[in-house]
Design a protein around this nucleic acid. Sequence first.
DNA 1: AGCGGTATTGACCGGCCGGCCAGTTAACAT
DNA 2: ATGTTAACTGGCCGGCCGGTCAATACCGCT
Lengths: 201, 201
Amino acid sequence: MSQRPQTRDPELTRARILDAAEALFVEQGFSAVKLSELARAAEVTKSLIHHHFGSKEQLWESVKNRAFERYFTAQMAMLEEAGEPDAALLRSSVEAYFHFLRDNPDVVRLFAWTHLEGDNHCGELDNQLVGAGAEWVRQAQWRGLLRQDVNPTHVIAVFVMTCTQWFEAKCHHEHWPGMGSDEAFLEDFLKIFMEGVVPRG
Amino acid sequence: MSQRPQTRDPELTRARILDAAEALFVEQGFSAVKLSELARAAEVTKSLIHHHFGSKEQLWESVKNRAFERYFTAQMAMLEEAGEPDAALLRSSVEAYFHFLRDNPDVVRLFAWTHLEGDNHCGELDNQLVGAGAEWVRQAQWRGLLRQDVNPTHVIAVFVMTCTQWFEAKCHHEHWPGMGSDEAFLEDFLKIFMEGVVPRG
DNA sequence: AGCGGTATTGACCGGCCGGCCAGTTAACAT
DNA sequence: ATGTTAACTGGCCGGCCGGTCAATACCGCT
């Protein structure tokens, strides 16, 4: 049994607890996680968890806060990189979002858990993101680059939900007959989506 | 306290337990449900639950089996009603699926729980459904009624996943700025989807 | 050096969880 | 009537859950 370092580092301890908690909560869900298990995983005592976070529930809140903050800043960064709105940029935004979810499965599962809890925790942050995305679509519509008879928020919603569900329900449809790889599906989705949002020729 | 009827009816008892269990599991998830609570809700003793179902886990399996069977037969009935494949029928199939989910929120949550558990429980049944749907799309493609450069299974997947996520993540996006009602979203999704799957004119 | 504060520990607690079992009662076949 | 089977009950149990608390170890400040 390797001894813990003698020096104290409360921030590192908090981070270790948060990391272990995120892994377990994301894997098993809030009520299935046992504090004893979590303490073992984080290599701290149970009491220390209570000392730093108060209760299991507050810890769960902290985990969600931290993860959503990460999600939000990543998305905002992507959004700010975007330049002039046009169809090609919409396509690459969808690709970027899809690949972000692929590379961050924890975020996907966290969303799923909060959906089931009816938790709209990341509400304000998300409203900002969606608002910015919708505004972006609206500008492209004004310029005649996207069809104008659809609600811009719905355009965002369609691709966000398709990408999200692709990864949330992976275990469900990955064995469907004829189903392709991540990239093959994205390719076909983009064919349908892009053809559906450009103005009718 | 109303007395239970003196006559015995094991099937009714089983059904009562299954009903109560479905309600609780769907609401709270497997590990958050307590057998004592379930017994109270079903108006039976805890022992009786074990007598009929063995364990909490087996009960959860039974609940899922029953619910997925219902889902499967409903979907199969809808599929068999479908006639000649064409674009209009695809549209009405999407509408039917969307409204089915709207009217069966338990099914939606059940799917979400099983996704998080990595449970591919309804695998075989679903493969049949998806296979039939994809075959239907393939025929429409042969006849030139749908574009031929997309995987038929992906066409099914796109609309199934969008509809599913719309209801699974309702609490998440229902407050997004500019988001419309169920029907308004379905309308816009269909505009995009249908325009995306018909052959380019 | 001495002190205050807090990070950290381990022992402990009340409560309740899922599950079990011995016993009772209704249904039914003969 | 009587024996058999299975539905049903109440009481109980071992274990572990989240949480508490007094005691200790370490750090920063003066």
